[in-house]
Amino acid sequence: MQTPDLGEDPLALDRQVCFALSVASRNVISLYRPLLAPMNLTHPQYLVMLALWERAPRSVTDLCEALHADAATLSPLLKRLESVGYVLRTRSRTDERRLEVALTAEGESLRAQAEKVPYQIVETLGVGLVDLEELHTALTKIIRSSRQALDAR
């Protein structure tokens, strides 16, 4: 494999992918906060709700896979979502070791309010939809290849 040309200074901060991803992630998530606050959701809780609005009920294991998270990270989020009345956690009737997460009526009805969020984010960012879709495609490739690299370790 040929060594890529990383320019004169391969350690220049403004050329680092990790730096750009970190700053972009922090900034974009900050834009979500005021939009999610009226729904009593944090950004990580919103991601859980998105997964559940996509398909529910789901097992905790399935949610972990969908969100690329571990159970230790997900457990407090699910407890909080249950305490505000958005989800219900129950043991599977067929396998007691399996914890299932279902939406409550309140959690289901919250979807109508949440449907406005993506439109508000696109408008706030002021970046064309085509550019955002291309970014999403590139980030999905990065997620996939980084997962493969981590799994190969």
Rank of each mutant, 00 (worst) to 15 (best):
C64V: 00
L11I: 06
L77A: 01
P4Y: 05
L47V: 06
Q120H: 14
T42D: 14
V48R: 10
Y119M: 10
L52A: 02
L35C: 06
T140I: 01
D5E: 14
A56P: 03
Y32L: 12
E123D: 13
S109K: 11
H43Q: 12
T124P: 00
Q120A: 15
V28K: 06
L63S: 01
N40A: 15
T94I: 08
A114W: 08
E106K: 14
V87I: 11
P38F: 10
P4W: 08
A51Q: 10
H43P: 10
V117P: 06
E65Y: 02
A51F: 03
P4I: 11
R55V: 09
A51P: 02
P44D: 13
L110F: 03
L52N: 04
I142G: 01
E123W: 02
P44S: 12
S145W: 08
S145N: 13
A24C: 13
R98T: 13
A24Y: 07
E115H: 09
R15Q: 11
V87Q: 07
A112F: 06
V101A: 08
Q16V: 00
L41H: 08
T90N: 03
Q16Y: 03
H43Y: 15
H136D: 11
I121T: 08
D14P: 01
S146G: 02
I142C: 06
L125I: 04
L103P: 00
L125A: 01
L63A: 04
L103N: 07
E123A: 13
Y46R: 07
P10V: 06
A102L: 07
A37V: 10
D9E: 09
D5G: 00
V122W: 02
E96N: 08
L99I: 15
R55Y: 12
D9Q: 10
D5L: 11
T137M: 10
